[in-house]
Write a protein that binds this DNA or RNA. Structure first.
Length: 115
DNA sequence: AATCTGACTCGAT
DNA sequence: CATCGAGCCAGAT
């Protein structure tokens, strides 16, 4: 099976599983990717994802639902727009996790993430 | 090897 | 709620 999967790839593949219209936190992605405690690494790595991979980086937020980029920055605005395009409500640079937070289905995960 | 830096997190205030 | 501080961890200096 998949023996030697890089942290980078694991992270991208995990984020790829977050469905449209839902969001997840950096820490959550790190955990699911089998990299507990490495939330910061998730952010770093998302910026390195090849465009052709179409990783939905904008669906990843801080643990409190806020957009990680400084409010008003171009990046933050881009992210807000991408989210709104899929009907995720963003108010004051924040998304209500109770409403849009992703609850991964374990069976599906095991299927899609054969690390 | 020591220090700094971040698309982070969590608990206390 | 909003802020703060300390903890965290891999990479870069």
């Amino acid at each position: 099976m998949t023996a030697k999967v890089h942290p980078h790839e694991r992270i991208w593949r995990t984020v790829l599983v977050v469905p449209e219209g839902r969001v997840a936190s950096y820490g959550q992605i790190a955990d699911l990717a089998g990299l507990p405690g490495r939330a910061r690494m998730v952010g770093k790595v998302l910026g390195l994802a090849p465009d052709e991979l179409n990783v939905p980086w904008y669906r990843i937020l801080r643990s409190d639902g806020r957009i990680a980029f400084p409010a008003g920055s171009e990046s933050a605005e881009r992210q807000k727009q991408r989210l709104q395009e899929e009907d995720v409500v963003v108010l004051r640079n924040r998304v209500k996790l109770a409403e849009f937070g992703w609850k991964p289905d374990l069976a599906e995960l095991l299927m899609k993430l054969e690390f």
